[in-house]
Design a protein around this nucleic acid. Structure first.
Length: 782
DNA sequence: CCAAGGCCGGTTTTT
DNA sequence: CCGGCCTTGG
């Protein structure tokens, strides 16, 4: 049995069972309480947005423990993200007033599968120390296979093949199980490549993310005794965000819950927005069939949003067919109606939202003042963020983009990690391939082929192959010397990595230094270079939390979190997907145009299903708002350089008029929003479009505001903090660096703003505090 | 082997 | 319009 069996954890179930009061039950509503107390048998907790789902879920765990029904290590609790897992751990500890270190099986599907797979790796032909490939490695591997099979790379781009394979894995299709229907002439090649890929992974003693689940599934399916063991072991199963599970995860859960059926799935079919990556809403819709006699508990009291917001979201989502159905209600005060506004173009939309946010900070339109932290802008696609970033940089409105390229996915971080990996395991060929010529060491295609051949013939890893090829003279010139140097360096680093007395932090710095990697970025003149050096510094700092490099690498393979900086009040900008699970007092939902939202591609590729998922996305967006929700659309938008006009989103038609207030567009660009909308007919969007712009409160307000702005240096006065120090730090001709626009030269100073001619981005006016002197930006990291 | 220019394509994202 | 990737020319 697992070693955890003998490790009881910090909670003593018996002590808890001794009859102390249950603080975690306080303040739960009847439905929540039912969900907490229905411990045995299958339970489906249908938890609408903002209904206290996490609260109920954590209380349920607390209840299992407190009543002594289960010990901490007998509960299997799965989440989708590490963040969710972490939060759940914290909240259970809070509820019970002590740390819950003894919950080894609370984690993401993937983290739990890694644990299981390391125990039984041999059963699927792996060694327990298998490595987990990231997407980058995966693609590189596939590229090699495609090349080796002499297949046209254009017909089979490695990226696309990776996506297809991922998809198959989501559906639990191993190469032999990909159904005939999928195996058209085109895909037959794909299946062959898939099979080769799996073969190659096994040789490399590696798995990709999908494999983590599939291998464990195969073990369960092929070894009744083992499955039986775990069924007995995991006496209670909890699943968060069940609507996001894919087929493989579903099969996995069904196997584990098959015996005792003590499974509690929590989710909301209306918030299923990950269909495109394999999530099956069907899993949640089918729950009662899969588990006959299941108890279905609906959490319908919403604690988050005002009635107007709730009613708007409910009406919208009602247009979807095949829902399980919930009636959300709230006893909150009425509050503001959902606001709707149309704009002439995307830039005006960004400008208006920027102005509105500035006004909201002081309180506007009779509303309370909002802090920047309380405001979020949620977009459909990340490219929409740009307009806002540009605008906010110009007016000096602090913002933060959530969920950009994740820290551990950035190039410099992956490179550095590859160095660390290779130092720890000199046989990590994928890592070697990644860094052999980064920085440039004169290793091109040809030299790499020589290394590959040497290694293959001698049956040694690539790093050792490179050393031999250099020694034997198979490599010449620059490549020869560099490879000898590199191999010697890795021999040194490897010894240090194994030495428990050596500091792994110093080792990391040493590796990045001696390899010339840091230097490579120092010599790089692109605007991103300083940021990359900064990231490397951060990476080294992250090492401090670990005992050694090995531990760190293991952690990072699974955890791709990036909640580093949080200082300062800022407006949040993120995609609707990234916003799931979050809430904000005030939410802006821009870009509600047909084609953009709902996305054309989604509708083309998935028809009605696609449209319904888009609608759920809209539902998720609206329900993020606590007090104020503002939807907007633009008649014209620049797409890939060209101007395109669009109709307001069909979702706008589906909003309930009585809960929506139509604001008047400023219509600065002559004509406001006109022809396009009237074509669409009546309803809200036509009203938003046709409103008499020149005779409306909105127009007057705009006039007032622009008048106010036009006279005297109002811009500066409008900001609470004018960073005079920041301005005075510069004079004309200074070389400066800006986070977004890169390097440039100051050509004028007005108020708190600088006009800068950027090398790449052209002339722009930006607030001085967003700029640093160029030499300060290129500080050496270590 | 590498740097510079042409061409194609271009949602959503976690592990 | 931008960025990645491939081709081309040194």
């Amino acid at each position: 049995m697992p070693e955890d069996a003998s490790a009881p954890g910090t909670l003593s179930a018996r002590a808890l069972a001794a009859g102390r009061p249950a603080p975690y039950l306080e303040g739960l509503n009847p439905a929540q309480r039912e969900a907490v107390e229905a411990l045995d048998g299958p339970v489906l907790m249908l938890a609408g947005a903002g209904t206290g789902k996490t609260r109920a879920l954590t209380a349920r765990i607390a209840h299992l423990l407190h009543t002594g029904t289960a010990r901490p290590n007998e509960i299997l609790a799965v989440t989708f993200t590490n963040k969710a897992a972490r939060e759940m751990k914290e909240r259970v500890s809070q509820l019970l007033g002590q740390t819950v270190e003894g919950m080894p099986w609370l984690g993401t599907f993937h983290a739990i599968c890694v644990k299981l797979l390391r125990r039984h790796a041999e059963l699927v032909g792996l060694k327990p120390n298998f490595t987990i490939l990231d997407t980058d490695d995966q693609v590189r591997l596939l590229k090699q296979l495609i090349l080796a099979a002499n297949i046209d790379e254009k017909r089979w781009p490695a990226r696309q093949l990776a996506a297809i394979i991922d998809n198959w894995k989501n559906r639990a299709w191993t190469p032999d199980k990909v159904p005939a229907g999928e195996a058209n002439a085109f895909n037959r090649q794909g299946i062959a490549l898939y099979a080769q890929y799996q073969e190659r992974l096994r040789e490399l003693n590696a798995v990709d993310f999908g494999d983590l689940l599939l291998h464990v599934l195969a073990i369960f399916q092929g070894h009744d005794d083992i499955l039986e063991q775990y069924r007995r072991w995991f006496r209670y199963i909890l699943v968060d965000e069940y609507q996001d599970t894919n087929i493989a995860q579903y099969l996995w859960l069904r196997l584990l819950a098959g015996g005792h059926r003590n499974i509690c799935c929590v989710g909301d079919d209306d918030q299923s927005i990950y269909g495109w990556r394999g999530a099956e809403v069907g899993n949640i819709l089918r729950f009662e069939k899969d588990f006959p006699g299941a108890r279905v508990i609906r959490l319908e009291q919403n604690y988050r949003s005002t009635p107007h917001i709730l009613a708007t979201a409910s009406k919208l989502i009602a247009a979807n067919a095949g829902r399980l159905g919930k009636t959300l209600w709230t006893d909150r005060a009425e509050g503001e109606k959902v606001r709707l506004i149309g704009h002439w173009d995307g830039e005006e939309e960004a400008r208006w939202i920027g102005d509105e946010i500035e006004a909201m900070q002081k309180g506007t339109r009779g509303m309370r003042a909002f802090g920047l932290d309380e405001i979020a802008i949620l977009v459909r696609a990340s490219h929409q963020m740009r307009a806002f970033e540009d605008r906010f940089l110009t007016i000096g409105l602090p913002y933060r983009v959530i969920g950009g390229p994740r820290f551990y996915e950035r190039r410099e971080i992956r490179d550095a990690m590859a160095y660390f990996r290779l130092a720890v395991s000199p046989d990590d060929d994928l890592a070697f391939e990644r860094i052999a010529n980064t920085p440039k060491r004169g290793i091109g295609d040809k030299a790499m082929q020589v290394i590959q051949r040497t290694a293959r013939e001698a049956g040694v890893p690539l790093l050792e192959g490179a050393r031999r090829a250099a020694e034997s003279g198979a490599l010449t010139g620059k490549a020869k010397g560099e490879m000898l140097r590199l191999a010697a360096a890795f021999a040194r680093w490897h010894a240090l990595a194994l030495d428990p007395k050596a500091s792994h932090i110093e080792l990391a710095e040493q590796i990045l230094d001696e390899s010339g990697y840091t230097e490579m970025w120092q010599n790089d003149k692109t605007p991103e270079a300083p940021g990359r050096l900064e990231n490397l510094k951060e990476l080294v700092k992250a090492l401090e939390e670990f005992e050694n490099l090995q531990g760190f690498l293991e952690h990072v393979a699974l955890i791709m979190d990036n909640d580093t900086e949080a200082e300062g009040a800022k407006v949040s900008i993120m995609t609707l997907h990234a916003a799931k699970g979050l809430e904000f007092p005030a939410v802006f939902l821009p870009g509600w145009e047909d084609g953009l939202f709902p996305s054309q591609r989604s509708m083309d590729e998935n028809g009605l299903k696609g449209l319904e998922e888009e609608r759920r996305l809209a539902y998720v967006g609206i329900t993020r708002a606590e007090e104020l929700c503002t939807i907007s659309f633009a008649a014209n938008r620049r797409v890939y350089g060209q101007w395109q006009s669009a109709l307001p989103s069909r979702f706008i038609d589906e909003l309930p008029e009585e809960h929506v207030e139509v604001l008047t567009p400023p219509g600065l660009y002559g004509g406001g929003y006109g022809a396009a909308a009237t074509a669409h007919g009546s309803g809200l969007e036509a009203r938003a479009a046709r409103a008499d712009v020149y005779n409306s409160p909105g127009w007057r307000r705009l006039q007032e505001r622009s008048a106010e702005r036009g006279m005297s240096q109002p811009r500066a006065a409008r900001h609470q903090v004018i960073d005079l120090e920041a301005v005075s730090a510069f004079t004309e001709g200074d070389r400066v660096f800006h986070d977004k626009f890169g390097y440039g030269v100051v050509c004028a100073i007005e108020g708190d703003k600088l006009e800068i001619a950027f090398d790449k981005a052209g002339r722009k006016k930006v607030v001085a505090s967003f700029v640093v002197a160029a030499d300060a930006a290129s500080d050496v990291p270590f």
